[in-house]
């Protein structure tokens, strides 16, 4: 089973990180899932792949009623992001999945009816979780061509999906980035190869640098906090991307 850690708490407004599954088979990439709760309602961010559903569900259920998860945010269309959708729908058939308009006809291959999907326009949208505004921030081409981050202004948290992702070695499994310089080595190759558009990266860095962010939470690897958030944005801004090797 995965472990859950509260990374933000303000009354019933919480952010839960569901991380590090020791039982996960080695051939599946490790993922972080995040659950935002507010007013008794939950939104699950990138609920993960179908094979790790038991680990995520069990971890979530230990803290929160899965039937109160009425919404899912899918940063993009990858199987490690959203292939578990059919099983989450089993616990709430009215579940709404927010995803780029580009993927709203692809993701139903993982399950769901048209009524389960909210197609996000390219410019993004403000979602509401029991009155809590959550901003879908455009992050197209980083890496998916229809890609969003989710920003919680009140909690000052940005869920960044694959941006900031690091494939960490077994001896560096902490929840937060502790030493930026050594951490970022595990993120570099991934960002060079997976991220395809320098122009899109430039505009993302500008957009995100203007936001007030305490925690930048990626789908893989450790969370950037405090100074490391801007360290990451600056590092990414200067990184040469869209290269096969090197």
């Amino acid at each position: 089973m995965k472990t859950t850690q509260i990374i933000h708490e303000d009354g019933d407004h919480q952010w839960l990180a569901i991380v590090r599954d020791p039982a996960r088979p080695a051939h599946l990439i490790d993922t972080n899932e995040y659950l935002v709760t507010h007013g008794g309602q939950g939104m699950l961010l990138d609920p993960g792949g179908v094979e790790i559903f038991p680990a995520v569900f069990s971890a979530v259920a230990a803290r929160f009623d899965p039937a109160a998860i009425g919404e899912v945010f899918a940063s993009h269309q990858d199987p490690d992001v959203i292939s578990s959708l059919a099983l989450w729908l089993e616990f709430n058939p009215a579940l709404r999945c927010h995803v780029s308009w580009m993927w709203s006809a692809f993701i139903p291959h993982f399950g769901g009816q048209p009524s389960n999907f909210n197609a996000l326009p390219d410019e993004g949208a403000t979602l509401s979780l029991a009155g809590l505004p959550l901003q879908a921030v455009p992050a197209h081409y980083l890496h998916s061509s229809g890609n969003f981050n989710l920003y919680d202004r009140q909690a000052r948290i940005l869920y960044s999906g694959d941006i900031g992702a690091a494939l960490l070695p077994a001896d560096a499994q902490g929840l937060y980035v502790e030493d930026f310089a050594s951490h970022i080595r595990h993120a570099e190759g991934f960002h060079r190869r997976w991220m395809g558009s320098t122009e899109a990266k430039r505009s993302w860095c500008e957009r995100v640098a203007a936001l007030d962010i305490d925690l930048l939470c990626p789908q893989h690897g450790a969370i950037y906090r405090g100074e490391d958030v801007h360290r990451f944005i600056d590092w990414f801004d200067g990184l040469q991307i869209g290269v096969l090797r090197g």
């Binding site: 559903f53 038991p54 069990s58 259920a61 039937a67 059919a86 099983l87 616990f91």
Partner: peptide, 28 residues
């Protein structure tokens, strides 16, 4: 495949409502 995945869900004994929902989903 899905039944196999669902059967791997573990819910603590004190989460009665969730447990019964998981069993119902499995039974279905």
């Amino acid at each position: 495949r899905y039944a196999g995945i669902l059967s791997r869900v573990e819910v603590a004994a004190d989460r009665g409502r969730v447990r019964s929902r998981v069993s119902a989903a499995l039974a279905a």
